[in-house]
Computed example of a mutant assay.
Amino acid sequence: MRRNTRAGEELSRLKAYFESPDVCAQHVMADYFGSDEPPQSCCSTAGSRCSACWDAGRAPESERRPEVARAFHSPRPRDGGAHVDSAQRAQRVDRQVHRLLQLQPRGMHPRRVWHALRGDESAFLPGVGRMVALPRALRDSRHFGGRADLVFPEVGRSLARLAQLGAAQELPDGTWQPLRPAGATAEARRNGA
């Protein structure tokens, strides 16, 4: 099964899970892993009860929600800091892009980087007029498929940031290559270069 197909199925299941907050999480997990019923100890005590069972009032009146469960239960959840998250996300994308470039030291087109990050096993090459499998080094990388939600312009922005740091350069044919190890990129960032 292709990674994209499997990822789509997983996302559908995850969406269904979050759209049914009154369904016992233990039963959802049992169903996911192919079991008819969860173990009997699941949701049987205050320490093992899921939030759906607490919220639906399936707990004995004598029991109180544990401190940890109360800490995570909030009627008004708040964002975790969108500005910090976007900066951290950009840094993570930069690291992934740089590491993929290191796997192709002669150079790699931004579209190929994008396909690798999305988990596409092959990409259309206009020069040959057909789909061509990505190199094995990219497909075997731990970063392959690591950013299935990445849009192509983000790859360009990442490459521009890496070029500004002196960690990558664009070649005359439009491909990009790494210039120094990722550790040196982090060192340059710390030193303000």
Rank of each mutant, 00 (worst) to 15 (best):
V155N: 04
G156E: 13
N4F: 05
G8H: 09
E61H: 06
A163T: 06
E154Q: 15
C50W: 10
A123Y: 00
W54D: 07
C50R: 04
A137T: 14
L101R: 00
G81Y: 03
V68R: 14
L162Y: 04
A148N: 05
V28W: 12
A16W: 00
Q91P: 01
H109A: 12
C50A: 10
H73T: 14
Q169F: 02
H109Y: 08
F33V: 15
A186E: 02
D140C: 10
C42Y: 13
S35C: 12
R142W: 04
E37I: 08
F72W: 14
R161I: 02
A168N: 04
S62R: 13
R95L: 10
V84G: 06
R118S: 10
R49Y: 11
T5F: 06
R70C: 08
A7Q: 14
D85V: 10
G34P: 12
G47L: 13
D79G: 12
Q88D: 07
L162P: 02
P172W: 11
H73W: 14
R136Y: 03
P135F: 01
M29F: 11
P66R: 09
Q169N: 03
P66K: 08
P178T: 04
P153H: 06
H98E: 02
Q177M: 07
D55H: 12
G129T: 03
G47C: 07
P110Y: 11
G146D: 09
A167P: 03
G34I: 01
R64W: 03
K15N: 06
Q40E: 15
S62K: 10
A160W: 01
K15A: 05
L179W: 03
R92W: 01
L159I: 07
G156L: 14
R130H: 01
F33Q: 09
R89P: 01
R76F: 09
G192M: 05
H27G: 08
V151R: 14
E154M: 09
V132H: 05
R64E: 13
Q96R: 15
G8Y: 03
V23M: 11
A52K: 11
H115E: 03
R106Q: 13
R76K: 15
H143R: 11
A148S: 10
P181L: 11
V128W: 01
M1S: 14
P39W: 08
A71G: 08
F124S: 00
F18H: 12
A90M: 13
T185W: 05
P153D: 09
D36T: 13
N191G: 07
M131H: 04
E37N: 12
